[in-house]
Design a protein around this nucleic acid. Sequence first.
DNA 1: CTTGAATCTGAATCACCAGTCAACTTCTGC
DNA 2: GCAGAAGTTGACTGGTGATTCAGATTCAAG
Lengths: 205, 205
Amino acid sequence: MAKTRPKQTKDRHQEILVAAARVITDRGLAETRISDIADRCGVSPGLILYYFDSKDRLLVEALTYANDKYYLAQARELRRMDSAVDQLRRLIDLSVPGLLPDYERLEEWALWIEIWVRALRDPALAKEREVLDRRWRQSIADIVRHGRTTGEFPEGEDADELGMELGALIDGLAIQVLMNDTQVSPERMQGTCRSVASKLIGAEV
Amino acid sequence: MAKTRPKQTKDRHQEILVAAARVITDRGLAETRISDIADRCGVSPGLILYYFDSKDRLLVEALTYANDKYYLAQARELRRMDSAVDQLRRLIDLSVPGLLPDYERLEEWALWIEIWVRALRDPALAKEREVLDRRWRQSIADIVRHGRTTGEFPEGEDADELGMELGALIDGLAIQVLMNDTQVSPERMQGTCRSVASKLIGAEV
DNA sequence: CTTGAATCTGAATCACCAGTCAACTTCTGC
DNA sequence: GCAGAAGTTGACTGGTGATTCAGATTCAAG
Protein backbone atom coordinates (compact mmCIF):
# COMPACT_ATOMS: atom_id res chain seq x y z
CA MET A 1 0.00 0.00 0.00
CA ALA A 2 1.69 3.10 -1.22
CA LYS A 3 -0.47 5.35 0.91
CA THR A 4 0.84 4.19 4.27
CA ARG A 5 4.13 6.02 3.99
CA PRO A 6 2.84 9.33 2.68
CA LYS A 7 0.08 9.29 5.24
CA GLN A 8 2.54 8.52 7.99
CA THR A 9 4.63 11.46 6.93
CA LYS A 10 1.68 13.76 6.85
CA ASP A 11 0.62 12.66 10.30
CA ARG A 12 4.05 13.31 11.74
CA HIS A 13 4.05 16.72 10.16
CA GLN A 14 0.72 17.63 11.67
CA GLU A 15 1.58 15.99 14.93
CA ILE A 16 4.57 18.29 15.27
CA LEU A 17 2.52 21.34 14.38
CA VAL A 18 -0.09 20.50 16.96
CA ALA A 19 2.55 19.86 19.59
CA ALA A 20 4.29 23.12 18.72
CA ALA A 21 1.08 25.11 19.03
CA ARG A 22 0.41 23.59 22.41
CA VAL A 23 3.90 24.29 23.65
CA ILE A 24 3.65 27.87 22.44
CA THR A 25 0.43 28.44 24.35
CA ASP A 26 1.87 26.77 27.42
CA ARG A 27 5.27 28.41 27.55
CA GLY A 28 5.03 31.34 25.15
CA LEU A 29 6.71 31.68 21.81
CA ALA A 30 9.88 33.12 23.31
CA GLU A 31 10.33 30.20 25.69
CA THR A 32 9.54 27.47 23.20
CA ARG A 33 12.49 25.18 22.56
CA ILE A 34 12.75 22.51 19.94
CA SER A 35 13.32 19.92 22.62
CA ASP A 36 10.01 20.92 24.26
CA ILE A 37 8.20 20.14 21.06
CA ALA A 38 10.13 16.91 20.65
CA ASP A 39 9.24 15.87 24.20
CA ARG A 40 5.58 16.58 23.59
CA CYS A 41 5.70 14.32 20.53
CA GLY A 42 7.78 11.69 22.27
CA VAL A 43 10.52 11.87 19.65
CA SER A 44 14.08 13.13 19.57
CA PRO A 45 14.91 16.78 18.86
CA GLY A 46 16.68 15.80 15.68
CA LEU A 47 13.47 14.58 14.14
CA ILE A 48 11.84 17.96 14.46
CA LEU A 49 14.53 19.46 12.28
CA TYR A 50 14.15 16.56 9.92
CA TYR A 51 10.62 17.64 9.13
CA PHE A 52 11.09 21.38 9.33
CA ASP A 53 14.00 23.31 7.94
CA SER A 54 14.38 25.51 10.97
CA LYS A 55 12.78 26.35 14.24
CA ASP A 56 11.56 29.66 12.87
CA ARG A 57 9.68 28.14 9.96
CA LEU A 58 8.12 25.56 12.22
CA LEU A 59 6.90 28.19 14.65
CA VAL A 60 5.38 30.35 11.95
CA GLU A 61 3.66 27.36 10.41
CA ALA A 62 2.39 26.23 13.79
CA LEU A 63 0.87 29.62 14.55
CA THR A 64 -1.12 29.79 11.35
CA TYR A 65 -1.98 26.11 11.42
CA ALA A 66 -3.59 26.41 14.83
CA ASN A 67 -5.47 29.54 13.90
CA ASP A 68 -6.76 27.81 10.81
CA LYS A 69 -7.98 24.86 12.79
CA TYR A 70 -10.00 27.04 15.14
CA TYR A 71 -11.37 29.15 12.34
CA LEU A 72 -12.54 26.22 10.28
CA ALA A 73 -14.26 24.58 13.22
CA GLN A 74 -16.06 27.82 13.96
CA ALA A 75 -17.06 28.45 10.36
CA ARG A 76 -18.45 24.94 10.04
CA GLU A 77 -20.55 25.40 13.14
CA LEU A 78 -21.92 28.80 12.14
CA ARG A 79 -22.82 27.63 8.66
CA ARG A 80 -25.23 25.12 10.12
CA MET A 81 -27.32 27.84 11.77
CA ASP A 82 -30.14 29.53 9.91
CA SER A 83 -30.65 32.63 12.03
CA ALA A 84 -28.12 35.45 11.75
CA VAL A 85 -28.87 36.46 15.31
CA ASP A 86 -27.97 32.97 16.48
CA GLN A 87 -24.83 33.06 14.39
CA LEU A 88 -23.71 36.38 15.79
CA ARG A 89 -24.44 35.37 19.35
CA ARG A 90 -22.53 32.17 18.90
CA LEU A 91 -19.62 33.95 17.27
CA ILE A 92 -19.45 36.31 20.22
CA ASP A 93 -19.63 33.49 22.73
CA LEU A 94 -16.88 31.63 20.94
CA SER A 95 -14.75 34.76 20.99
CA VAL A 96 -14.92 35.43 24.70
CA PRO A 97 -11.87 33.84 26.30
CA GLY A 98 -12.91 31.51 29.07
CA LEU A 99 -16.65 31.94 28.69
CA LEU A 100 -17.30 28.45 27.43
CA PRO A 101 -15.83 25.47 29.24
CA ASP A 102 -13.99 24.51 26.06
CA TYR A 103 -10.81 26.22 27.08
CA GLU A 104 -9.14 25.96 23.72
CA ARG A 105 -10.39 29.46 23.11
CA LEU A 106 -7.91 30.78 25.59
CA GLU A 107 -5.17 29.23 23.54
CA GLU A 108 -6.42 30.77 20.39
CA TRP A 109 -6.23 34.30 21.72
CA ALA A 110 -2.84 33.77 23.26
CA LEU A 111 -1.64 32.62 19.86
CA TRP A 112 -3.06 35.73 18.26
CA ILE A 113 -0.96 37.98 20.44
CA GLU A 114 2.12 35.95 19.64
CA ILE A 115 1.30 36.29 15.96
CA TRP A 116 0.97 40.05 16.29
CA VAL A 117 4.28 40.49 18.05
CA ARG A 118 6.14 38.37 15.62
CA ALA A 119 4.44 39.77 12.53
CA LEU A 120 5.89 43.15 13.43
CA ARG A 121 9.33 41.88 12.36
CA ASP A 122 8.60 38.86 10.19
CA PRO A 123 7.32 39.83 6.74
CA ALA A 124 6.26 36.29 5.89
CA LEU A 125 4.13 36.03 8.98
CA ALA A 126 2.88 39.58 8.47
CA LYS A 127 1.41 38.53 5.16
CA GLU A 128 -0.28 35.48 6.64
CA ARG A 129 -1.65 37.51 9.49
CA GLU A 130 -3.40 39.87 7.16
CA VAL A 131 -5.13 36.97 5.47
CA LEU A 132 -6.23 35.52 8.79
CA ASP A 133 -7.45 38.83 10.15
CA ARG A 134 -9.33 39.64 6.99
CA ARG A 135 -11.07 36.28 7.16
CA TRP A 136 -12.09 37.05 10.72
CA ARG A 137 -13.66 40.41 9.84
CA GLN A 138 -15.21 38.81 6.79
CA SER A 139 -17.03 36.20 8.80
CA ILE A 140 -18.70 38.93 10.83
CA ALA A 141 -19.59 40.90 7.73
CA ASP A 142 -21.08 37.76 6.21
CA ILE A 143 -23.35 37.29 9.19
CA VAL A 144 -24.55 40.87 8.85
CA ARG A 145 -25.26 40.37 5.17
CA HIS A 146 -27.03 37.12 5.90
CA GLY A 147 -29.19 38.82 8.52
CA ARG A 148 -30.19 41.46 6.01
CA THR A 149 -31.36 38.90 3.48
CA THR A 150 -33.39 37.11 6.13
CA GLY A 151 -34.82 40.40 7.34
CA GLU A 152 -33.44 39.97 10.84
CA PHE A 153 -31.27 43.07 10.44
CA PRO A 154 -32.22 46.36 8.78
CA GLU A 155 -30.23 47.75 5.89
CA GLY A 156 -27.66 50.30 6.97
CA GLU A 157 -23.95 50.86 7.17
CA ASP A 158 -21.68 48.87 4.88
CA ALA A 159 -21.41 45.29 6.15
CA ASP A 160 -17.64 45.22 5.74
CA GLU A 161 -17.31 48.36 7.81
CA LEU A 162 -19.42 46.73 10.50
CA GLY A 163 -17.23 43.65 10.33
CA MET A 164 -14.21 45.81 10.99
CA GLU A 165 -15.87 47.64 13.85
CA LEU A 166 -17.16 44.59 15.65
CA GLY A 167 -14.03 42.62 14.92
CA ALA A 168 -11.88 45.33 16.47
CA LEU A 169 -14.18 45.61 19.47
CA ILE A 170 -13.99 41.89 20.09
CA ASP A 171 -10.21 41.88 19.66
CA GLY A 172 -9.77 44.68 22.13
CA LEU A 173 -12.06 43.21 24.74
CA ALA A 174 -10.67 39.71 24.33
CA ILE A 175 -7.22 41.00 25.19
CA GLN A 176 -8.49 42.41 28.47
CA VAL A 177 -10.33 39.23 29.35
CA LEU A 178 -7.36 37.09 28.40
CA MET A 179 -5.21 39.20 30.72
CA ASN A 180 -7.60 38.41 33.54
CA ASP A 181 -8.50 42.04 33.99
CA THR A 182 -10.63 42.34 37.10
CA GLN A 183 -12.85 44.95 35.47
CA VAL A 184 -13.49 42.99 32.29
CA SER A 185 -14.98 39.60 33.09
CA PRO A 186 -16.01 37.16 30.36
CA GLU A 187 -19.65 37.80 31.15
CA ARG A 188 -19.20 41.53 30.91
CA MET A 189 -17.46 41.18 27.60
CA GLN A 190 -20.31 39.07 26.31
CA GLY A 191 -22.85 41.67 27.40
CA THR A 192 -20.86 44.55 25.95
CA CYS A 193 -20.41 42.81 22.61
CA ARG A 194 -24.10 42.10 22.31
CA SER A 195 -25.08 45.60 23.34
CA VAL A 196 -22.69 47.39 20.99
CA ALA A 197 -23.52 45.02 18.14
CA SER A 198 -27.21 45.73 18.65
CA LYS A 199 -26.65 49.47 18.49
CA LEU A 200 -24.40 49.38 15.46
CA ILE A 201 -26.49 46.90 13.51
CA GLY A 202 -29.81 48.36 14.56
CA ALA A 203 -31.45 45.18 15.77
CA GLU A 204 -31.49 43.33 19.06
CA VAL A 205 -28.82 40.67 19.26
CA MET B 1 27.91 71.12 43.63
CA ALA B 2 26.22 68.25 45.35
CA LYS B 3 23.58 67.98 42.69
CA THR B 4 25.88 66.86 39.93
CA ARG B 5 26.33 63.33 41.16
CA PRO B 6 22.77 62.49 42.13
CA LYS B 7 21.54 64.05 38.93
CA GLN B 8 24.09 62.13 36.94
CA THR B 9 22.95 58.88 38.50
CA LYS B 10 19.33 59.59 37.87
CA ASP B 11 20.04 60.51 34.29
CA ARG B 12 21.91 57.31 33.70
CA HIS B 13 19.00 55.32 35.08
CA GLN B 14 16.54 57.06 32.82
CA GLU B 15 18.94 57.04 29.93
CA ILE B 16 19.10 53.27 30.12
CA LEU B 17 15.33 52.95 30.34
CA VAL B 18 14.87 55.16 27.31
CA ALA B 19 17.51 53.25 25.37
CA ALA B 20 15.93 49.95 26.37
CA ALA B 21 12.50 51.08 25.21
CA ARG B 22 13.90 52.16 21.88
CA VAL B 23 15.78 48.90 21.39
CA ILE B 24 12.65 46.96 22.24
CA THR B 25 10.63 48.81 19.63
CA ASP B 26 13.40 48.41 17.08
CA ARG B 27 14.28 44.76 17.56
CA GLY B 28 11.43 43.35 19.61
CA LEU B 29 11.51 42.26 23.22
CA ALA B 30 12.65 38.76 22.35
CA GLU B 31 15.64 40.00 20.36
CA THR B 32 16.75 42.63 22.83
CA ARG B 33 20.15 41.92 24.30
CA ILE B 34 21.86 43.75 27.10
CA SER B 35 24.69 44.68 24.80
CA ASP B 36 22.22 46.32 22.39
CA ILE B 37 21.05 48.59 25.15
CA ALA B 38 24.63 49.28 26.20
CA ASP B 39 25.55 50.16 22.62
CA ARG B 40 22.65 52.54 22.36
CA CYS B 41 23.86 54.28 25.51
CA GLY B 42 27.47 54.19 24.43
CA VAL B 43 28.53 52.34 27.58
CA SER B 44 29.76 48.88 28.35
CA PRO B 45 27.34 45.99 28.97
CA GLY B 46 28.55 45.62 32.52
CA LEU B 47 27.22 49.04 33.41
CA ILE B 48 23.69 48.08 32.52
CA LEU B 49 23.78 45.35 35.15
CA TYR B 50 25.31 47.82 37.57
CA TYR B 51 22.12 49.87 37.45
CA PHE B 52 19.61 47.09 37.09
CA ASP B 53 19.61 43.81 38.95
CA SER B 54 18.75 41.74 35.94
CA LYS B 55 17.77 41.99 32.34
CA ASP B 56 14.23 40.95 33.16
CA ARG B 57 13.67 43.71 35.66
CA LEU B 58 15.13 46.27 33.33
CA LEU B 59 12.86 45.22 30.50
CA VAL B 60 9.73 45.30 32.61
CA GLU B 61 10.65 48.69 33.99
CA ALA B 62 11.40 50.00 30.51
CA LEU B 63 8.03 48.86 29.18
CA THR B 64 6.04 50.61 31.87
CA TYR B 65 8.33 53.63 31.91
CA ALA B 66 7.78 54.29 28.22
CA ASN B 67 4.04 53.79 28.50
CA ASP B 68 3.95 56.19 31.37
CA LYS B 69 5.83 58.83 29.45
CA TYR B 70 3.39 58.70 26.56
CA TYR B 71 0.37 58.67 28.81
CA LEU B 72 1.46 61.65 30.85
CA ALA B 73 2.24 63.72 27.78
CA GLN B 74 -1.20 62.93 26.39
CA ALA B 75 -3.03 63.63 29.63
CA ARG B 76 -1.30 66.98 29.99
CA GLU B 77 -2.29 67.97 26.50
CA LEU B 78 -5.91 66.91 26.87
CA ARG B 79 -6.31 68.69 30.18
CA ARG B 80 -5.61 71.99 28.51
CA MET B 81 -8.63 71.67 26.21
CA ASP B 82 -12.04 72.89 27.27
CA SER B 83 -14.25 71.09 24.80
CA ALA B 84 -14.88 67.39 25.34
CA VAL B 85 -15.37 66.95 21.61
CA ASP B 86 -11.92 68.40 21.01
CA GLN B 87 -10.49 66.17 23.68
CA LEU B 88 -12.04 63.05 22.24
CA ARG B 89 -10.97 63.88 18.71
CA ARG B 90 -7.46 64.55 19.85
CA LEU B 91 -7.34 61.35 21.88
CA ILE B 92 -8.42 59.41 18.81
CA ASP B 93 -5.86 61.12 16.59
CA LEU B 94 -3.13 60.42 19.09
CA SER B 95 -4.18 56.77 19.19
CA VAL B 96 -4.01 56.10 15.47
CA PRO B 97 -0.60 54.66 14.70
CA GLY B 98 1.10 56.67 12.01
CA LEU B 99 -1.61 59.28 11.57
CA LEU B 100 0.38 62.13 13.02
CA PRO B 101 3.94 62.73 11.84
CA ASP B 102 5.12 62.25 15.40
CA TYR B 103 6.01 58.65 14.90
CA GLU B 104 6.55 57.86 18.54
CA ARG B 105 2.99 56.64 18.55
CA LEU B 106 4.02 53.67 16.49
CA GLU B 107 6.47 52.77 19.20
CA GLU B 108 3.87 53.04 21.87
CA TRP B 109 1.57 50.50 20.28
CA ALA B 110 4.39 48.11 19.54
CA LEU B 111 5.30 48.28 23.20
CA TRP B 112 1.71 47.52 24.18
CA ILE B 113 1.76 44.27 22.28
CA GLU B 114 5.02 43.31 23.91
CA ILE B 115 3.50 44.08 27.28
CA TRP B 116 0.50 41.88 26.52
CA VAL B 117 2.56 38.92 25.46
CA ARG B 118 4.81 39.11 28.42
CA ALA B 119 2.05 39.80 30.93
CA LEU B 120 0.56 36.42 30.04
CA ARG B 121 3.42 34.75 31.91
CA ASP B 122 4.82 37.46 34.15
CA PRO B 123 2.58 38.15 37.16
CA ALA B 124 4.46 41.33 38.11
CA LEU B 125 3.98 42.81 34.68
CA ALA B 126 0.42 41.53 34.56
CA LYS B 127 -0.37 43.65 37.58
CA GLU B 128 1.22 46.74 36.08
CA ARG B 129 -0.58 46.19 32.82
CA GLU B 130 -3.93 46.22 34.52
CA VAL B 131 -3.15 49.58 36.07
CA LEU B 132 -2.03 51.01 32.75
CA ASP B 133 -5.02 49.67 30.86
CA ARG B 134 -7.44 50.90 33.46
CA ARG B 135 -5.94 54.36 33.25
CA TRP B 136 -6.42 54.29 29.51
CA ARG B 137 -10.10 53.40 29.73
CA GLN B 138 -10.49 55.91 32.51
CA SER B 139 -9.20 58.78 30.42
CA ILE B 140 -11.89 58.10 27.84
CA ALA B 141 -14.58 57.80 30.48
CA ASP B 142 -13.44 61.11 31.96
CA ILE B 143 -13.85 62.83 28.63
CA VAL B 144 -17.39 61.47 28.38
CA ARG B 145 -18.20 62.70 31.86
CA HIS B 146 -16.69 66.06 31.10
CA GLY B 147 -18.77 66.35 27.93
CA ARG B 148 -21.90 65.63 29.90
CA THR B 149 -21.22 68.41 32.38
CA THR B 150 -20.55 70.88 29.56
CA GLY B 151 -23.68 69.70 27.76
CA GLU B 152 -21.78 68.58 24.67
CA PHE B 153 -22.86 64.99 25.23
CA PRO B 154 -26.29 63.75 26.31
CA GLU B 155 -26.73 61.65 29.41
CA GLY B 156 -26.84 57.96 28.62
CA GLU B 157 -24.95 54.77 29.16
CA ASP B 158 -22.51 54.53 32.06
CA ALA B 159 -19.38 56.52 31.23
CA ASP B 160 -17.08 53.74 32.42
CA GLU B 161 -18.83 51.26 30.18
CA LEU B 162 -18.34 53.66 27.29
CA GLY B 163 -14.68 53.99 28.18
CA MET B 164 -14.31 50.24 27.97
CA GLU B 165 -16.13 50.03 24.66
CA LEU B 166 -14.24 52.81 22.93
CA GLY B 167 -10.96 51.77 24.48
CA ALA B 168 -11.37 48.24 23.17
CA LEU B 169 -12.38 49.51 19.74
CA ILE B 170 -9.30 51.71 19.53
CA ASP B 171 -7.06 48.88 20.73
CA GLY B 172 -8.41 46.50 18.15
CA LEU B 173 -8.15 48.93 15.28
CA ALA B 174 -4.73 50.17 16.31
CA ILE B 175 -3.41 46.63 16.06
CA GLN B 176 -4.56 46.36 12.47
CA VAL B 177 -3.11 49.73 11.54
CA LEU B 178 0.16 48.94 13.28
CA MET B 179 0.35 45.72 11.28
CA ASN B 180 0.07 47.76 8.11
CA ASP B 181 -3.15 46.07 7.13
CA THR B 182 -4.04 47.20 3.64
CA GLN B 183 -7.72 47.37 4.50
CA VAL B 184 -7.29 49.42 7.66
CA SER B 185 -5.47 52.64 6.90
CA PRO B 186 -4.82 55.27 9.58
CA GLU B 187 -7.40 57.57 7.99
CA ARG B 188 -9.99 54.83 7.94
CA MET B 189 -9.33 54.04 11.57
CA GLN B 190 -9.78 57.69 12.44
CA GLY B 191 -13.09 57.85 10.61
CA THR B 192 -14.34 54.64 12.14
CA CYS B 193 -13.44 55.72 15.65
CA ARG B 194 -15.27 59.02 15.24
CA SER B 195 -18.29 57.42 13.70
CA VAL B 196 -18.64 54.69 16.32
CA ALA B 197 -17.96 57.12 19.15
CA SER B 198 -20.67 59.41 17.83
CA LYS B 199 -23.19 56.59 17.72
CA LEU B 200 -22.38 55.23 21.15
CA ILE B 201 -22.18 58.61 22.87
CA GLY B 202 -25.13 60.07 21.03
CA ALA B 203 -23.46 63.26 19.79
CA GLU B 204 -21.41 64.14 16.76
CA VAL B 205 -17.68 63.82 17.39
C1' DC C 1 15.40 -12.32 1.80
C1' DT C 2 17.69 -7.93 0.11
C1' DT C 3 18.24 -3.38 -0.91
C1' DG C 4 17.74 1.37 -0.89
C1' DA C 5 15.03 5.02 0.77
C1' DA C 6 12.67 7.09 4.55
C1' DT C 7 12.60 7.71 9.33
C1' DC C 8 14.68 8.39 13.63
C1' DT C 9 18.23 8.86 17.35
C1' DG C 10 21.24 11.24 20.49
C1' DA C 11 25.76 12.79 21.02
C1' DA C 12 28.72 16.50 19.37
C1' DT C 13 29.29 21.13 17.65
C1' DC C 14 28.79 25.85 17.71
C1' DA C 15 27.25 30.42 18.68
C1' DC C 16 25.34 33.31 21.64
C1' DC C 17 24.50 35.94 25.71
C1' DA C 18 23.33 36.92 30.84
C1' DG C 19 25.64 37.77 34.59
C1' DT C 20 30.29 38.15 37.37
C1' DC C 21 34.37 40.24 38.63
C1' DA C 22 38.81 42.36 39.27
C1' DA C 23 40.85 46.35 37.97
C1' DC C 24 40.65 51.19 36.52
C1' DT C 25 38.83 55.96 36.57
C1' DT C 26 36.30 59.74 38.21
C1' DC C 27 34.19 62.06 41.48
C1' DT C 28 33.07 64.20 46.45
C1' DG C 29 33.86 65.60 50.88
C1' DC C 30 37.19 66.83 53.94
C1' DG D 1 45.66 66.86 47.81
C1' DC D 2 43.82 62.46 49.72
C1' DA D 3 40.74 58.61 50.97
C1' DG D 4 36.97 56.39 50.00
C1' DA D 5 32.76 56.00 47.32
C1' DA D 6 30.59 55.77 42.96
C1' DG D 7 30.85 54.82 38.31
C1' DT D 8 32.76 52.22 34.48
C1' DT D 9 35.16 48.79 31.79
C1' DG D 10 35.66 44.54 29.25
C1' DA D 11 37.36 40.00 29.62
C1' DC D 12 35.67 35.77 31.43
C1' DT D 13 32.46 32.04 32.96
C1' DG D 14 28.67 29.03 32.54
C1' DG D 15 24.65 27.57 30.74
C1' DT D 16 21.58 27.08 27.05
C1' DG D 17 19.77 25.63 22.93
C1' DA D 18 19.70 25.40 17.63
C1' DT D 19 21.58 22.74 14.24
C1' DT D 20 24.50 18.95 12.33
C1' DC D 21 25.69 14.38 11.58
C1' DA D 22 27.05 9.65 11.58
C1' DG D 23 24.97 5.95 12.28
C1' DA D 24 20.74 2.74 13.65
C1' DT D 25 16.19 1.23 12.48
C1' DT D 26 12.05 0.53 9.82
C1' DC D 27 9.65 -0.14 5.73
C1' DA D 28 8.12 -1.03 0.84
C1' DA D 29 8.97 -3.30 -3.23
C1' DG D 30 10.97 -6.74 -6.03
